[in-house]
Amino acid sequence: MSTLLRAAPAPRTTALAPGRSRGRTLRSSAATALIWLAFAIALVPLVWIMWTVLSRGLPSMLHLTWWNKDQSGVGPAGFDHQVRGARHAIVGTLLMAALTSLIAVPIAILTAIYLVEYGRGRIARIVSFMVDILSGVPSIVAALFIYAVWVTTFKLTLVPACASLALVLLMIPVVTRSAEEMLRLVPNELREAAYALGVPKWKTILRVVLPSCMSGIVTGGLLGFARVAGETAPLLLVASYTQFLNQNMFSGSMAALPTLINTNVQFMSSDPISADRVWGAACTLIVLVLAINLAGRLLGHLTRVKS
């Protein structure tokens, strides 16, 4: 439809359209210019951010120590010039996001299946509404909720898994929405064909419907993973930073790239090493998130069902 519109040559010459005054043509051209300008302006922050982070953070990232050392041996104020590794934070970010996905993805996919395959009437409408509400819950409120349950109510000590629990609340709606969209794209003929062969509904969903939209669901999962890996606010509340590598989700503290940034940012103006750490961590985070995000998009694009 849009190609048709574009193909139609816009009658620009005043000779062809006698009813069109110069003012109207001018106004239209001005609108076109403004609309192109709006897009161009939106690219400025994107390019500026990318350039800033890459130019300042890439040097730190290119050292081998960045990947295989943590910050042990660095003084509390962070003025050490030798050790600048981020292994503890990179591992922490990945572990937290992995545990989050492990909990959130099954719940989200089942919710999507409920909404598309089973849900009818009022309950389905309420569930759908609540998914929207959950997707609007600010991340700090999700963390506050976990804090109120875990610490204030049950008097438990915070462990790294608490961060994952807070992130689960943020990941569920993202994955549910994309999985729901994918499930709705599966043509009904496939389901009907399976029913006609006497296949029960649950088997139809597991063996016919889900496999035919699996790549789309994986894309949604990767986008959700990328979103929670970059979240900071919940970590400030429920995941305290440590300089040391910790791979146990259920005891002690665990660092993450955002909390590494947050811990060092106050020394940035006085200490260039802290600044290197901050920009290095920011660069690692952005590269990680963008890589996962683009991988998800590419997968979705390559395996897209041609309509």
Binding site: E117, Y118, M130, L134, V137, P200
Partner: peptide, 26 residues
């Protein structure tokens, strides 16, 4: 198949209700 259906329907509905429950609990 019917038992599987009931189980699967139950699991999907539980996940849906869980989402509602989370918002209520918050």
């Amino acid at each position: 198949g019917r038992r599987g259906d009931r189980l699967f329907h139950g699991a999907a509905a539980t996940a849906g209700v869980l989402v509602v429950l989370i918002v209520v609990l918050i």
